[in-house]
Measured scan of single mutants.
Amino acid sequence: GPGLTDLFKTEKAAVKKMAKAIMADPSKADDVYQKWADKGYTLTQLSDFLKSKTRGKYDRVYNGYMTYR
């Protein structure tokens, strides 16, 4: 089956995709945050998933999740 690194890459891609969806349409934020909360994502995990070469690119999404939880 898929190894943990593959799983991480898949999760990371999914999280980034959802983060971009929030940035494009902030009204989606609560739905996405709820999904992440259901998956039990911690802020540390989210921070790892949303690492970007562009500093602060996903800060709004991260901060939103922090206040959501």
Rank of each mutant, 00 (worst) to 15 (best):
G1H: 13
G1I: 10
P2L: 13
P2F: 06
P2T: 11
G3T: 11
L4A: 13
L4N: 12
L4W: 11
D6I: 10
L7N: 14
L7I: 12
L7H: 13
F8G: 07
F8C: 13
K9V: 09
K9Y: 08
T10N: 08
T10S: 13
T10Y: 09
E11P: 03
K12P: 03
K12S: 11
A13W: 10
A13I: 13
A14Q: 13
V15Y: 01
V15A: 04
V15R: 00
K16Q: 11
K16F: 04
K16T: 06
K16A: 04
K17F: 08
M18P: 00
K20Q: 13
K20E: 12
I22Y: 00
I22S: 02
A24Q: 10
A24G: 05
A24Y: 08
D25L: 03
P26G: 06
S27M: 07
K28M: 13
K28F: 06
A29M: 04
A29N: 03
D30M: 12
D30E: 12
D31Q: 12
D31L: 10
V32F: 05
V32W: 02
V32H: 04
V32Q: 03
Y33R: 01
Q34W: 05
A37Y: 13
D38C: 11
K39N: 11
K39Q: 09
K39D: 05
K39T: 06
G40I: 01
G40E: 05
Y41L: 11
Y41A: 00
Y41S: 02
Y41E: 00
T42A: 04
T42G: 05
T42S: 09
L43I: 06
L43N: 04
T44L: 12
T44K: 14
T44F: 09
T44G: 08
Q45I: 09
L46K: 00
L46I: 11
S47G: 08
D48S: 14
K51S: 09
K53Q: 08
R55G: 12
G56Y: 06
K57N: 05
K57H: 07
Y58I: 02
Y58K: 00
Y58D: 01
Y58T: 01
D59S: 09
R60C: 12
R60K: 14
V61L: 03
Y62E: 03
N63L: 14
N63G: 06
G64M: 03
G64P: 01
T67V: 14
T67A: 15
Y68I: 02
Y68H: 05
R69F: 08
R69M: 15
